[in-house]
Design a protein around this nucleic acid. Structure first.
Length: 955
RNA sequence: GGGCUCAUAGCUCAGUUGGUUAGAGCACGCGCUUGAUAAGCGCGGGGUCGAUGGUUCAAGUCCAUCUGGGCCCA
């Protein structure tokens, strides 16, 4: 009998599975979208949108490995933005990009070649790099698709593509054209055996025994007097260095402005060293220094700035300069400064306008430049592998020691064991050596001011998100020195510069453009495969150039930041895939303020006179649960690939995790967090499923009820939905996805699951199919489902699409897609603040009733709330309750109890006068069909049921 | 070491211009339900708002210093 009655209920029904099976089933939907050509259809759908297009310009990931979870985070955020904007009615052409050139790939390929003992030409090496990069582009594309990224994959850009390389060269030509490109020296790591510059990544640190020397630099008496120093005996500043061979290149002595220095009397002479280091210098020089030997007046380093000391064996000044990096940890507190042989020295040299002087040739030998003493010229700075084994110092070091000793400038020397950089291929110590590089002047034509002006303009319309992004990029742009754009590498866009027989460099914008045109069709390997004469065939050379036959092509490549800085030129300026310049949004990690955002800004400002973006959104970095970076983490040692996470949780859960975090700050990841996100995912899925399952017999076109005729509870639910849509839209517009997540979470769990849906079950299951109240609720559910699934669609793209397919066709897959839909808009009639306020009080009483029921449950007197009758006593004392109490049956429904009664009793407040009684103990009878307790059951073919069920059974 | 930045319950987030006993969801504990069922409902415990000092009648909210984390430089 019970089963018979149960069969008369309209219980929820759907094929939309409760279990998601994301890991197994998502790939099917990826394939389905491919088949539908979803991205293309979405764009076609918006082809004539009055809102126009929203262009998010993709920052290219580097193509040398599997997609990292951090890269997946970035791409997913972009995908969320695109999907939202698309639903808002914008065309969202999204051209994905790939960063292909650069050292990590060249190095990886070079190592493989070395392991195979192969010798390749530059062009062959480049071909291998191309192949390597291409293979990762294919893999990464699949990995991005797997996490649900929708893009115009057929229109992707690659920085190694000929057309792209041509645009990079055109950007470079614009620099040249404006006279910004100049040649200057800068120190680089230098491998003497290979006569080539090395990158940091090509260096191995090994133990090495160097010769440490303490060298005296004379302070002429006149200078001593000028700076208030004792001048009656010879006075020296003592420096300390572990690279004696750099002494001929010494151009200055650096002191710390705020370190205390002392003059120490050694009898026949005096020396200046940092006060805290007097002891160590004395020990090294085997001297005994009595306190009385220290000049009573000490002074700060700043006092000696610009003092002109003398080089120990070359007739030139070595001025005192100031530098913050000087320490008193070791040495003398006076740092030997050779701008051509050290990174810090170089910067100090720029600051003090010293020459970037390097008297050492490509072969590591001293040059005869008129300054290097004749007996040093030709000596090499190289220590060969044999020298290292024999512990034999480089000839240049020995030569300098000899010169210093002859000059009486060597205060002390000692062996010094430390870790020193070595060439990864020749295994010999590298030297730091200034070589000619190409630079771009950033101030010559006022581009820095222009760039800063653009930063301000973007800030004026809140384009820096978060706002502090402005300060970060401004700092980077303000402090950036002239841009060194040449690299001594092979895997990159070659710098189109020629060298005459006398090694003079020839560069011209017109020539670069002409070569770019050839590169556009044949690629930059042309530069390596063809002779200059072939390359320049048909190119009109500017007046004064040597004949092509007398030229050789330069072997430098452009800094890869020019590549990526030119994406705006190659993609946006050409309108690739329907994009436009400037982009509406750039979205990358906050490290890019100094990186891509800056390089793009410079390239765009110089070439096109303005910023390439209207807004720049940044996200933080993934950290572990203790907010430590993953690489430092003890918990996460395995490779952090996107695929590994997806294989465990499914793309939608990973996407939801990304959406749930305030990504402007660091983004923690750990099992607990992902587990919680998994719970939220199931909440969303079950909520949608419950709605779908209760719409199985609902056809909106036939059964929908007009809003004004809908039941109060349903209208309240629609009001709440209107609020949700409004707040979520605002949050999406502000890129605050975590707020959307929180709002939806609360909406689903509190508003729907615990309240609205719970109350609705009685109506939906037990009333007649076409009962107005049931249809009213179905109308509301239908509308709420529509809004909710759309709001969630940018996050859980797979699940939303799946639910949409079931909602529209009752099939797992269909030709339509949620992602082709428009963003939900709440009709004005949904909004009903008065009703919302009333419901607040009713729900307050609902909570009080629940609270009152609890003790009875604990006592075992009551199970479900439907078995209770509620009696409010003293209600007339409370006007709020008076308003609430207009419709007792509606209240019973709201509270999910069987009956609500009022017993006015003066002097009792509602809060303490809610009487709960089990229906079973009173004169009620339980309807076996709807489980409600009623005063009287009636006869029916199915047995005894309540009058309402009897009515329902008639239909 | 410098620039920018973050710090609220176990987790993820709210907390408008400083103003009553700091909120939500999840997790946790205890129950209920078995007609959303590898689901659903109810109740409950849990935070000296990173630390210290200051301004104020009043500070999670303003100021200073410190501690710890992150990004970028050095």
């Amino acid at each position: 009998m019970a089963q018979d009655l149960k069969d008369t209920l309209l219980l929820p029904k759907t094929d939309f599975p409760m279990r998601a099976g994301l890991v197994q089933r998502e790939p099917g939907r990826v394939a389905h979208w491919e088949k539908l050509q979803l991205h293309g259809r979405i764009q076609a759908n918006r082809a004539n949108s009055p809102k126009g297009s929203f262009v998010l310009h993709d920052g290219p990931p580097f193509t040398n490995g599997d997609v990292h979870i951090g890269t997946a985070l970035n791409k997913t955020l972009k995908d969320i933005v695109n999907r939202y904007k698309s639903m808002q009615g914008f065309r969202t052409p999204y051209v994905p990009g790939w960063d292909c050139h650069g050292l990590p790939i060249e190095q990886k390929v070079s190592r493989e070649i070395k392991e195979q003992n192969l010798t390749l030409t530059t062009a062959q090496l480049r071909a291998k790099c191309d192949e390597f990069s291409e293979s990762w582009i294919k893999k990464q594309t699949e990995q991005f698709k797997r996490i649900g990224v929708l893009a115009d994959w057929a229109n992707e850009y690659k920085t190694k593509a000929p057309a792209f390389e041509a645009d990079v060269l055109r950007t470079f030509a614009a620099f040249v054209e404006q006279g910004l490109v100049y040649r200057s020296k800068k120190p680089v790591y230098w491998s003497i055996p290979f006569e080539t510059a090395l990158a940091e990544a090509e260096i191995e640190y090994k133990d090495h025994t160097s010769i440490a020397i303490w060298v005296k630099f004379l302070v002429p008496a006149a200078e001593a007097a000028k700076f208030g120093l004792p001048a009656d005996k010879p006075l020296y500043i003592v420096i300390w260095t572990t690279t004696p061979w750099t002494i001929p290149a010494n151009l200055a002595i650096a002191l710390h402005p705020e370190v205390e220095y002392a003059v120490v009397d050694l009898g026949a002479e005096r020396i200046i060293v940092a006060f805290p280091l007097i002891g160590t210098v004395a020990t090294a020089a085997k001297l005994e220094v009595m306190p009385s030997a220290i000049w009573p007046t000490t002074f700060m380093g700043a006092k000696l700035e610009h003092l002109q000391a003398r080089h120990p064996f070359i007739d030139r000044a070595s001025p005192v300069v100031l530098a913050d990096y000087v320490t008193t940890d070791s040495g003398t507190g006076a740092v030997h400064t050779a701008p051509g042989h050290g990174a810090e020295d170089y910067l100090t040299g720029l600051k003090y306008k010293l020459a970037i002087y390097c008297p050492v040739g490509d072969d590591g030998k001293y040059l005869d430049d008129g300054q290097v003493p004749a007996d040093l010229v030709g000596l090499t700075t190289l220590e060969t592998v044999e020298d290292l084994k024999a512990k034999k110092p480089a000839p240049a070091n020995l030569g300098v020691l000899k010169k210093l000793a002859e000059a009486g400038a060597l205060l002390a020397k000692a062996k010094y064991a430390h870790s020193y950089p070595h060439c990864w291929r020749s295994k010999t110590p590298i030297i730091f050596r200034a070589v000619d590089q190409w630079f771009v002047s950033l101030d010559k034509a006022g581009h820095r001011q222009l760039a800063l002006g653009e930063i301000t303009k973007i800030a004026q319309h809140q384009g820096w998100i978060p706002a502090w992004g402005e300060a970060r990029i401004r700092g980077a742009v303000e402090s950036r020195p002239d841009w060194c754009i040449s690299r001594q590498r092979s895997w990159g866009v070659p710098i189109i510069a020629f060298y005459g027989p006398d090694k003079q460099a020839w560069i011209d914008a017109g020539v670069i453009r002409a070569v770019a045109a050839k590169v556009a069709t044949s690629g930059t390997n042309l530069w390596y495969d063809a002779t200059p004469a072939q390359i320049l065939e048909g190119v009109k050379l500017p007046a004064g150039w040597p004949a092509p036959a007398d030229l050789t092509g330069g072997r430098d490549t452009l800094d890869v930041w020019i590549d990526s800085g030119s994406t705006q030129a190659a993609v946006l300026k050409t309108g690739q895939g329907g994009t436009h310049w400037p982009a509406d949004l750039y979205l990358e990690g906050s490290d890019q303020h100094r990186g891509w955002f800056q390089s793009s800004l410079w390239c765009s400002v110089i070439a096109w006179g303005g910023a390439p973006y209207k807004a720049v959104l940044t996200h933080g970095f993934i950290v572990d649960k203790d907010r430590q970076k993953i690489s430092k983490s003890s918990t996460y040692q395995k490779p952090q690939t996107a695929d590994a996470y997806i294989a465990q949780h499914g793309a939608d859960v990973i996407r939801l995790w990304i959406a749930s975090q305030d990504f402007r700050d660091d983004i923690p990841v750990d099992d607990e967090i992902l587990k919680h996100v998994g719970e939220a995912y199931r909440l969303f899925r079950n909520t949608l499923r419950f709605q779908l399952s209760n719409l199985f017999d609902f056809d909106a076109t036939k059964h929908a009820i007009a809003p004004e005729k809908m039941d109060m509870l349903d209208r309240w639910a629609l009001h709440q939905t209107a609020v949700l849509i409004d707040e979520c839209t605002k949050a999406y517009d502000a890129y605050e996805f975590h707020r959307v997540y929180q709002l939806c979470n609360q909406f689903c769990s509190v508003t729907l699951s615990a309240t609205y849906h719970d109350i609705l079950k009685d109506r939906l299951y037990t009333l007649g199919a076409a009962h107005p109240l049931r249809r009213s609720s179905q109308t509301a559910i239908h509308a709420i489902f529509d809004a909710l699934v759309k709001i969630l669609a940018p996050f859980i793209t797979f699940t939303a699409d799946e639910a949409w397919s079931y909602a529209t066709t009752n099939q797992e897959y269909s030709d339509g897609s949620i992602h082709l839909q428009n963003w939900p808009i709440a009709p004005p009639e949904w909004t009903n603040p008065k009703l919302a306020t009333e419901m607040v009080s009713r729900l307050k009483y609902r909570a009080l009733v629940n609270e009152a029921i609890e003790p009875l449950r604990a006592a075992g007197k009551l199970g479900k709330s439907l078995d209770a009758v509620v009696t409010f006593q003293g209600v007339h004392a409370d006007h709020e309750m008076h308003a609430v109490g207009q419709d007792l049956s509606a209240l019973a429904e709201l509270f999910i109890v069987s009956d609500v009664k009022f017993t006015p009793t003066a002097g009792v407040t509602p809060e303490n006068s809610i009487l709960i009684e089990p229906c079973a103990e009173l004169s009620y009878h339980r309807c076996p069909r709807c489980w409600r307790w009623v005063p009287k059951l009636v006869h029916n073919p199915h047995g005894e049921v309540c009058p309402r069920c009897a009515e329902a059974l008639k239909s």
